[in-house]
Design a protein around this nucleic acid. Sequence first.
DNA 1: TTGTATGCGTTATCAT
DNA 2: ATGATAACGCATACAA
Lengths: 353, 353
Amino acid sequence: MSKKDSVTIYDISKELNISAATVSRALNNNPKISVKTRELVMKTAKKLNYKQNKLALALKSGRTNTVGVIVPYINRNFFSAVIDGIENELSPHGYHVIICQSHENVELEANHVTTLLNTKVDGIFMSVSKSTEDHDHFQKVLNEKVPLVFFDRKKDIQGVSSVTIDDFKGGYLATEHLIKQGATRIAHFSGNLNLEIYRKRHDGYIKALKDYGLPVNEKWIVHTNSKIETGASAVSELWQEKTVPDAIFSASDYAALGAIQELKKLNVSIPDEVSIVGFSNEPFTKFMELPISSVDQTPVLMGQIAAQVFLEQINGNQSLSIEKKVVLAPELYIRKSSNKEKNLKGKPLASME
Amino acid sequence: MSKKDSVTIYDISKELNISAATVSRALNNNPKISVKTRELVMKTAKKLNYKQNKLALALKSGRTNTVGVIVPYINRNFFSAVIDGIENELSPHGYHVIICQSHENVELEANHVTTLLNTKVDGIFMSVSKSTEDHDHFQKVLNEKVPLVFFDRKKDIQGVSSVTIDDFKGGYLATEHLIKQGATRIAHFSGNLNLEIYRKRHDGYIKALKDYGLPVNEKWIVHTNSKIETGASAVSELWQEKTVPDAIFSASDYAALGAIQELKKLNVSIPDEVSIVGFSNEPFTKFMELPISSVDQTPVLMGQIAAQVFLEQINGNQSLSIEKKVVLAPELYIRKSSNKEKNLKGKPLASME
DNA sequence: TTGTATGCGTTATCAT
DNA sequence: ATGATAACGCATACAA
């Protein structure tokens, strides 16, 4: 802490009566240094327990070997899994990962961007908060020529790379699966349709219905959020009509869980009377007594790919701003909540646990 | 990126024909600067979009306003919740949080410590990996006079603060609760007893049995880990004997889940024939059709307290190494898996959802 | 092969 | 109240 307690290249240079420059070169394996001095330097460096001060290096080089990650909440399975992927991919390359939480708040998000830029991170990864409309803080990042990579929740901005999953396909896969299970009256619990991810899941649902010649019933498209209660109340409302759905595709696992809980109260059997598929493949879905089918977003892979995109960018030509849009394929995990058949076979796009 | 694109105090000084020192002082609200110049500086700083380079500041001051957190896996509810607590507490103070994963590997852990020290973090938080025996890398941190705070999994080291929960009490509470539910043959699924946390949970279990005059049956203390399967196989073994337990206190929620699954196969009714309490209060425990009672470790609070301990340390007298050991009280969440009574009342230490 | 000098962007010390 | 200069620790262009 007290600063002058760490040994520098000057300490080594004094010890050996050579210049600090020589020490620096020896330490960096500069070829034009004699083997003898190099070894000598290395030895005394070890002896004095020298450690390179990354701060000075960063100030000089302009690179900190640190990246920032901004997520709504770190304490959420999906996001922590993405961070896991980023960290694992970047750590071997000597990068550190700074995490920030936006709490779905644009101002906090913008503040984090500012402070990350001030600490001169080499790149920023982020999943934009739900409340974000403004693009100013993204532009700031671009102005500083710091690579920016969106994951999952993105904004379409010139020069910004992104890694997302194909939410449309996720919605389509889920719905198609329900159709193939024999469902004809499929309800959809959607999230906020102003958000791209939910709109696409919704669109995939609609497309599947149309592709298979099923009617779209607006009444069966219910706006829920990621709370258990909203799924439950959606069911209790839907089940007051005379015609009830025989399947539900929920854009949220939590709403799906709420739906299941409510249906059990109503003595509706799952999956026989109603089949259900959720979204996100939250850990709890597979632990349930009635395991819930769900669309997996491959978050760890998403983080890894995002990290790779960043590495490409940082190692490539800085001047030309490459913009890479990676779209990952979601994976449908079929579990009991939607599986009427005892033995599942020949479903190439799906996995069964 | 390309370095000379960010504006410095020199740019401002040139613009105003004053010295950089004056600019620096004005920016830092140094009282001995004229109001006029200060305002002038502020204005042009804004105009030129000046941003303080934290790197230079860090090099000069020796403080980075960054802390490192090392956890086994970030993608684990408990740890991400602790990090959440740390981040939320420290962020308002201007600190950034670097996260590292040890993957329960001592060498990785030690490497992370080294690189964190090289980047001159202002403090290190960590939950030591299971494989950690060596104390060398902890000593390094102390040598650099960098505050070190252990959370949950700690090592007893002179001068190192720690925030843990009272695992003994957790084990005691869980067991006592089972006893009060009428159980007399309580099995314990323990983790690795070489680890302090599991040993203490075990000890709490033993103490409760003794306090209530119940015999300790070594056969009913089964070594499991945090896998569902180990809980299931533990049950299938125990249930081959003629005398079976009427309750299980599992040091892991996952093992508890496995036990429940297996017991259902054996048509043993829960909680009537067997009551079960797990540990950690994993999110899934409350989502189950048969919600699982569990001991909560208050991870977010743990992170917050750890952060506070760090702040005290950093703001206090650096020379005297204060060592603070905070032990948090665990909270027992009583759910159906152990709740025979319909209405629960007068349980001060426990919560009911 | 090695040394000297300089700069990265700040702040602090010493003058003025 | 302000300016000049050094220092934080390192790497490098230029000399030698």
